[in-house]
Amino acid sequence: MTMPEAPTAEILTVFMLVKTEPEWLGFPVETRFAKLREHVEPILQRHAAEVRMRFYDAEFYTARITDLWVWEASSRHAYELVVEALRETPFWDRYFRIVEIIPAVENAYARNYGQSPLAA
């Protein structure tokens, strides 16, 4: 059974909980940014029309993870292509351990019942 594709207006949001590995922390800050530009930036640029990424630091408040990567993608396939590309870099489970991946759809509860979402 194949699942129908989501409406084009629906954005997939994925919360990727990650933890830095000792190898990453062993690099000087300048090297870390150079590695981000070398490995991650080309992937983000290649998929910029369909995928957006935001970094959040969490190490101040939890020992479980150090960072939260938030992905917004216009489709599951666009997100999957980014993950496939990231898995070919040392950022995936070498410099960062992927602790958990949580996909979500914003306000689906309201849309599923034909209601306006709550807003603050």
Rank of each mutant, 00 (worst) to 15 (best):
A48W: 00
R64C: 03
Q45I: 13
R94E: 15
K19Y: 09
F91Q: 00
P117M: 00
Y61I: 11
H77Q: 15
A48T: 13
A110C: 04
M1D: 12
P103N: 07
T2E: 14
Y109I: 09
A9L: 10
T89N: 06
F33D: 13
P117F: 01
H39R: 05
I102Q: 10
Q115C: 05
A58K: 06
E72Q: 15
Q45T: 14
T2R: 06
T13C: 09
I65C: 11
Y56H: 10
E5H: 10
L81P: 01
Y95I: 02
A9W: 12
E23H: 11
L17M: 11
L17N: 06
E100W: 07
R94P: 02
M1A: 10
M3A: 15
G26V: 05
P90T: 03
M16C: 11
A73Y: 00
R111F: 09
M1H: 08
R87N: 03
E41I: 08
A108E: 12
R46I: 04
F55E: 08
R76A: 12
Q45K: 13
E38S: 02
H47T: 03
D93N: 15
I101R: 07
I102N: 11
E59V: 08
P90F: 05
K35C: 00
D67E: 07
E5Q: 12
F33A: 13
T2N: 12
V29P: 11
